[in-house]
């Protein structure tokens, strides 16, 4: 089952002086959910757009993009025909209602009227939107709009689904619903590419993640193994309540790593007891001792300071 369906080699994209994508290479296997993580301006969206021919890559002889056997530079239509795209910004047709929006898109995909009708009913049910099928777009909540955008993207039963920040700005219930639906799609054989800056999202649904920063690939692998390989197991976060800085604390540098690049120092270690002992120097309110997560990894890789796009 683990056949490669997307292969990108040495991808570059320049906008004037800005290198949006800088020598990016990756592979995606069939029926896998591959997540692209990175701060705003990392080049995630540009990469997605290049894959379905919406943006043009820089023409280097060494640059190669292969999506299910097609090159988006030449076979844009073929790729878009077996892919579904859920954009970052909702672009549903506000002049049409829910059902008409889908009907119009079924025509774009060349679906017959009957097949389209059955599929629309089935998918509205699947995304729990059946009640809204005559609803106006303006009256839908953010979560409903996003779910409708997903329905629109999978109308024609695509093999590849590309989602650009699918759950940004949505409430937790909707996010969990969307995640579970995406898992179901993946089980049905759909290959999923998504961009996100929610670590939890990456952890929940991605089999593989690529962390990007400033157009470059920083790291790639399974979320769990990336985490265990690159970040200590536990973190002691401090909150500076007293005028006495937690920075002045004494600790064993062999066991504990201090990250004070941000205002509040964080202590990382694989030795829980060592951190526990360290935390004894602080008051209860001044710290949080927890397991490390993908966010810690993300911040370690992409840095804590803001870039000009953020």
């Amino acid at each position: 089952m683990s056949s490669i369906v997307i292969k990108v080699e040495h991808l570059h994209k320049t906008y004037g002086p800005l290198k949006a994508v800088n020598d990016l290479s990756f592979e995606v296997n069939r029926s896998v959910c591959h997540g692209f993580l990175g701060p705003n301006g990392a080049g995630k969206t540009t990469t997605m757009k290049i894959l379905y021919g919406r943006n043009q890559r820089d023409s280097f002889p060494s640059s190669k993009v292969n999506v299910f056997g097609y090159d988006p530079g030449q076979d844009e239509l073929q790729i878009k025909f077996f892919s579904g795209v859920v954009p970052q910004e909702d672009n549903l047709d506000s002049e049409l209602n829910v059902h008409q929006n889908l009907e119009v898109y079924s025509k774009f995909y060349g679906m017959g009227k009957k097949a389209a009708q059955a599929r629309i009913d089935e998918l509205l049910e699947f995304m729990e939107l059946s009640e809204k099928h005559k609803g106006r777009i303006r009256e839908l909540s953010g979560g409903m709009k996003r779910r409708l955008s997903i329905v629109r993207a999978i109308l024609h039963d695509p093999q590849l689904l590309i989602l650009d920040e699918p759950t940004t700005g949505l409430d937790p219930q909707v996010r969990h619903l969307i995640w579970s639906k995406l898992r179901q799609l993946k089980e049905n054989g759909v290959t999923i590419l998504l961009t996100t800056h929610y670590m939890e999202e990456a952890f929940q649904i991605c089999d593989v993640i690529t962390i990007m920063d400033k157009g470059r690939k920083m790291m790639e692998g399974e979320p769990q193994s990336l985490l265990s390989e690159h970040v200590e197991q536990f973190v002691l976060e401090t909150r500076n309540i007293n005028p006495v800085s937690p920075l002045q604390m004494k600790f064993n540098r062999d066991l504990i790593r201090l990250d004070d690049s941000h205002k509040l120092p964080m202590y990382y270690s694989n030795d829980f007891t060592a951190l526990k002992n360290l935390s004894d120097q602080l008051e209860q309110k001044e710290y949080n001792l927890r397991q490390s997560n993908l966010e810690d990894l993300f911040l370690k890789v992409t840095g804590r300071t803001l870039n000009e796009e953020q």
């Binding site: 379905y52 919406r54 844009e76 239509l77 878009k80 025909f81 579904g84 795209v85 954009p87 910004e89 672009n91 549903l92 047709d93 506000s94 002049e95 898109y105 774009f108 995909y109 060349g110 629109r152 993207a153």
Partner: peptide, 14 residues
């Protein structure tokens, strides 16, 4: 404003 073309360009249209 509506970004209708953006959506359409995600489907098999040029």
């Amino acid at each position: 404003f509506d970004k209708a073309y953006d959506g359409m360009l995600g489907s098999p249209l040029t």
